[in-house]
Simulated assay, not measured.
Amino acid sequence: MKQNKYDDAGFFANYSQMPRSVGGLEAAGEWHEFRAMLPDLSGKRVLDLGCGFGWHCRYAREHGAASVVGVDLSANMLERARAMTDDPAIDYRQLAMEDIDFADGAFDVVLSSLAFHYIADFAELCRRVYRYLAPGGAFVFSVEHPIFTARAAQDWHYGPNGERLHWPLDDYHEEGARQARFLDNDVVKYHRTVSTQLNALLAAGFAITKLSELPPTPELAAAWKDEFRRPMFLLVAVRKPGEYM
């Protein structure tokens, strides 16, 4: 299933008002951790899957990437990305992540931010990314944490006065589609366990270099007090064996 909720006018309007949509990478709570997991981008050929407004594409170029391809299914997203970008070395392409087709070894770095929980076949995507990476290439991505996606409600258990008592966890091992609510719209997200995701990467041939469940930092502790009561994001860095050409 290839969803394109971002070309729905109401959904896109709500998304455009999110802090990360307005403030960019520095307004994304997980960015400091994600950034630390990226390799040196100098001279690298970069692919961004689910590039959205192009924040990561522009960051890659600002930090020395030779070229960047940003892929997104949404025309609205890419229209905004192009309006915010003045760089001929960034190539935005409208297509689904499931439909990417590049030459073997075409990229040195593949990254993705909070997009893969919208695709049904993560294992196939891992196999494709492995082929498209040059030897020694890096693959870094973030997804909603499986503890967050396990229940379709994706919400707290509340007390009689509306207080957040705990985050309920159920059906963790029952993988598959969840009809979730996001930005006042129904969206389909795909739940898969941590082990399923890591094993898919290993089966594709990757070596895992770092994992993060976004531990609290002093900078985020006040603003994200409740969010650190359970993991909301899973960040993964892997590498294709070999040496850069």
Rank of each mutant, 00 (worst) to 15 (best):
Y59I: 10
A60Y: 07
A60E: 10
E62A: 14
H63K: 12
H63C: 06
G64E: 01
G64T: 00
A65Y: 08
S67H: 15
V69P: 02
V69M: 03
V69K: 01
G70T: 09
V71E: 05
D72L: 12
D72E: 14
S74Q: 08
S74N: 09
N76Q: 07
L78E: 06
A81G: 11
A81N: 11
R82P: 02
A83C: 09
A83W: 08
M84P: 00
M84I: 09
M84N: 08
M84Q: 11
D86P: 00
D87G: 11
I90S: 02
I90H: 00
I90E: 01
I90Y: 02
D91L: 11
D91C: 14
Y92D: 03
R93V: 15
Q94M: 15
L95W: 02
A96G: 15
M97K: 01
M97L: 15
M97P: 09
E98R: 09
D99Q: 05
D101H: 13
F102Q: 13
F102H: 12
G105A: 11
G105E: 09
V109R: 08
V110R: 00
S112L: 08
S113D: 11
A115I: 11
F116A: 05
F116Q: 01
F116P: 03
F116C: 05
Y118A: 02
Y118R: 06
I119K: 01
I119S: 02
I119F: 04
A120F: 12
F122H: 11
F122W: 15
F122N: 08
A123S: 13
E124C: 10
C126D: 11
C126Q: 14
C126M: 13
R127N: 14
V129E: 03
R131P: 12
Y132M: 13
L133Y: 00
A134T: 09
P135L: 05
P135K: 02
G137R: 08
F139G: 04
V143R: 02
H145K: 14
H145R: 15
P146D: 14
I147Q: 13
I147R: 12
T149R: 04
T149C: 08
A150H: 07
